[in-house]
């Protein structure tokens, strides 16, 4: 899936640039997310990469503690996660917003329709905090989730990672999928 670079405000991008290491609050470290997922007992990540998640995939491969299931098209990811859940595993889905739109019927039938307590990490392509984006993938994401009655959190930096355990708790408690929208590009390390 092609992706535009999200229009992240300059204050958030500062930490990614050389010499601006003091602005830690603006960074979403791939390795921190992998550690957070390991802490939740995640066994598999069913994913289709996008341009924002390349550092995450590198961190995942380096960590080796969670199995990666690469899919050919995003619509496969939810039913594969359902199968892993039937098998007693704890998968998450990781796709981009444009891929979530492609997965609409799978979300309906194989997540909402079976009360699947899965956490879905959705790359928020085109997101910027000011809301003025020409990218329709960003414009439609939150209305799309509202329409499907899927709850979500938005994560932009390491400071937001405490939302992730909460998303797992909510998914389990409600027996419904829960989305975590990734609002900034993962940083290496």
């Amino acid at each position: 899936m092609l992706a535009l670079r999200p229009q992240v405000p300059s204050t958030l991008m500062g930490g990614l640039e050389e010499g601006a290491g003091s602005m830690k609050h603006g960074i979403l470290r791939a390795s921190r997310l992998v550690e957070t997922l390991k802490g939740q007992g995640v066994t598999h990540i069913v994913a289709l990469p996008d341009s924002e998640t390349s550092h995450f995939h590198n961190a995942l491969r380096a960590g080796k503690a969670i199995d990666l299931v690469p899919v050919s098209r995003e619509g496969e990811s939810i039913p594969i996660a359902a199968g892993l859940w039937i098998a007693g595993k704890k998968p998450v889905v990781m796709i981009q917003n444009a891929g979530l739109f492609e997965s609409g019927d799978a979300l309906r039938g194989m997540a909402l329709g079976i009360n699947l307590p899965v956490v879905m990490f959705i790359g928020y392509r085109g997101y910027n905090r000011h809301g003025d984006t020409p990218d329709t993938a960003a414009q439609f994401l939150e209305p799309f989730l509202h329409m499907w009655r899927v709850n979500y959190y938005i994560i932009e930096s390491d400071d937001d990672l405490d939302r992730i355990p909460l998303a797992f708790q909510r998914a389990e408690k409600t027996g419904q999928p829960w989305a975590v929208l990734i609002g900034s590009e993962y940083a290496p390390g």
Partner: peptide, 22 residues
């Protein structure tokens, strides 16, 4: 037995998940 009656075309994907998990 798992019957995919409400997930058009997704039987092979559900089966893959089970096969990987078990």
């Amino acid at each position: 037995d798992v019957y995919i009656s409400n997930g058009m075309s997704k039987a092979s994907s559900v089966a893959l998940g089970i096969a990987l998990g078990r």
